[in-house]
Simulated scan of single mutants.
Amino acid sequence: MSETPENDETTAAGRRPGAREQAGRSGLLGSFDPVAAAEKRQTRIREEIARNRRGEYKVPTWVLALALAGVVGIWLLVLFVL
């Protein structure tokens, strides 16, 4: 009736990190592993693209800062020039 833990992918064995990740976490490869860093970056980019395709995108901080600067600039222009 119910699935056994061996068949369930959500068990601890299914979530166990790969050899490279495990070695990087324990410090066997040093403080910076360029291969692991590249894999992590690729994973983050893939996840962000997937989120954007689902419509879960966010406005970048620099765009918000630029919009705020524009609003403040226009406000100052109206107050002191016009």
Rank of each mutant, 00 (worst) to 15 (best):
2 S>G: 10
23 A>Q: 06
25 R>F: 07
20 R>F: 06
44 R>T: 01
13 A>C: 09
14 G>Q: 06
16 R>F: 09
60 P>Q: 07
71 V>M: 11
45 I>K: 08
22 Q>S: 14
74 I>C: 10
20 R>S: 05
60 P>W: 07
39 E>Q: 14
42 Q>H: 08
9 E>N: 09
63 V>E: 11
3 E>I: 09
23 A>C: 09
69 A>V: 09
38 A>T: 08
55 G>I: 02
17 P>K: 04
69 A>H: 04
39 E>T: 01
68 L>W: 07
35 V>S: 09
26 S>C: 07
49 I>Y: 01
70 G>W: 01
68 L>C: 14
60 P>K: 08
62 W>T: 15
28 L>F: 11
71 V>I: 14
67 A>G: 12
19 A>D: 10
5 P>M: 04
32 F>A: 10
44 R>Q: 13
41 R>C: 02
49 I>A: 14
41 R>A: 15
27 G>M: 05
6 E>D: 12
66 L>I: 04
56 E>D: 15
13 A>E: 15
1 M>E: 07
20 R>A: 08
16 R>S: 10
48 E>D: 13
58 K>M: 09
70 G>P: 01
50 A>V: 01
9 E>M: 13
44 R>C: 02
29 L>A: 07
46 R>K: 12
56 E>I: 05
76 L>S: 03
71 V>S: 09
73 G>H: 04
61 T>W: 08
57 Y>V: 05
82 L>V: 13
22 Q>L: 14
71 V>P: 02
4 T>R: 09
3 E>K: 05
43 T>S: 12
64 L>I: 12
60 P>L: 06
7 N>M: 11
41 R>F: 09
35 V>E: 15
65 A>I: 08
71 V>W: 05
15 R>N: 11
47 E>R: 07
71 V>N: 04
22 Q>A: 14
82 L>M: 09
56 E>M: 10
47 E>Y: 01
79 L>T: 13
38 A>P: 01
52 N>P: 00
15 R>G: 04
